[in-house]
């Protein structure tokens, strides 16, 4: 019972950060809800055995990143069935927005291109870049979460930036 009460405090303390990190990868509220809940469930199951070699936050982010990887693996497998639902969502977004259709379309094109470019980065570069740039994590934190050296984090950020530069090169001419 005590473990559970403690764990409720853990959820209250860390949920926002975990949520933000997962959302920056997944970019979908429903999937993020599911992954965050799964993350806390996984953490709850092994909370008694948590040895405290890293901070609770680092440990939770590590579990969340693993769940995000699983999510993308599943999504890749089922992607063939999602072509139509994605198109429907795009149409709905365009209809819902009150701004001019041209502006919405242009912003959506850029946003899609950026998200696609980030999504197409090699896994390690994507993880490092999203954690650093979209979540503002420290280099030492990222190194701890991924179990790599700080120099390797910096090198991966450079590689990610270099790939994004190439992928988004022509975007300002749009």
């Amino acid at each position: 019972m005590k473990v559970q009460e403690n764990f409720e405090d853990v959820i209250a303390k860390h949920q926002k950060k975990i949520y933000r990190i997962v959302f920056s990868f997944v970019k979908n509220e429903a999937d993020t809800d599911e992954i965050v809940q799964q993350t806390f469930f996984n953490a709850f199951k092994s909370y008694k055995n948590f040895e405290g070699r890293s901070s609770v936050e680092t440990w939770l982010i590590r579990i969340a990143i693993n769940n995000v990887r699983t999510h993308f693996r599943k999504r890749k497998f089922f992607s063939i069935f999602q072509v139509f639902s994605d198109a429907e969502e795009e149409i709905k977004e365009l209809k819902d927005n009150s701004r001019s259709a041209e502006e919405v379309f242009k912003n959506k094109m850029i946003s899609d291109k950026v998200n696609k470019a980030i999504g197409n980065l090699p896994a390690r570069q994507k993880e490092v870049f999203v954690m650093k740039h979209l979540n503002g994590l420290q280099i030492s934190e990222i190194a701890g979460i991924l179990g790599i050296a700080e120099g390797s984090v910096k090198a991966n950020i450079f590689k990610a930036m270099n790939n994004l530069r190439k992928l988004l090169g022509g975007i300002d001419e749009m």
């Binding site: 959820i11 209250a12 949920q15 926002k16 933000r20 959302f23 509220e29 809940q37 806390f40 850029i110």
Partner: peptide
């Protein structure tokens, strides 16, 4: 610098949440 400007303009905002409710939902989910 240009690339980061483009990326920063297209960041999708995180949805606003009632965090107390979400924590309760997470505990119930567990």
């Amino acid at each position: 610098s240009k690339t980061l400007n483009i990326i920063d303009k297209s960041i999708i905002e995180m949805p606003s949440k009632n965090w107390n409710y979400f924590a309760e939902k997470t505990v119930a989910g567990i």
